[in-house]
Amino acid sequence: MADEVVEGLKSKFGDAIIDIHEKSPDKTYVTVAPPRLPDVAEYLYKDLGARFSIASGMHMAHGFEILYHFALDAKHRFINLRVILDSEKPSIDSCAKRVPATEWIEREMWELLGIEFRGHPDMRHLLLTDDWPEGNYPLRQDWKDWREGGENGSEK
């Protein structure tokens, strides 16, 4: 049963699926080529009826990693789409128009990690103040706070 979904993904998207990692029987990590991510997400959401739970972004040594977590209720399993972005200028097409639930989390990833989501319908600050300085992304590993002499956007 587990493999129906994976096989389906493979046959439909071919080269776009870079790697498939079965963490446990009910959790699968699928690494997707960044340009095809919205298509894969839409396929999972529309055709397979998966629910989008949440996305998580991380700044790793090899670049920015975003995981889109989808839950397949009927089959009791999670499909996690992984994309790895370049650390210099991270940028990816937004899923927000096709999978509406991703809108807020993409806004959050943009403001905290500085990942650009192309074609996002409403890119404003979600958590931080509206006058937060541009190009200041606190969750990046090279970000320095005011105690270390970095810019913090505060008058302190």
Partner: peptide, 11 residues
């Protein structure tokens, strides 16, 4: 408009 509770716990 949210974010009045954001305390930067991840960082």
């Amino acid at each position: 408009e949210i974010g009045y509770n954001h305390r930067g716990i991840e960082k």
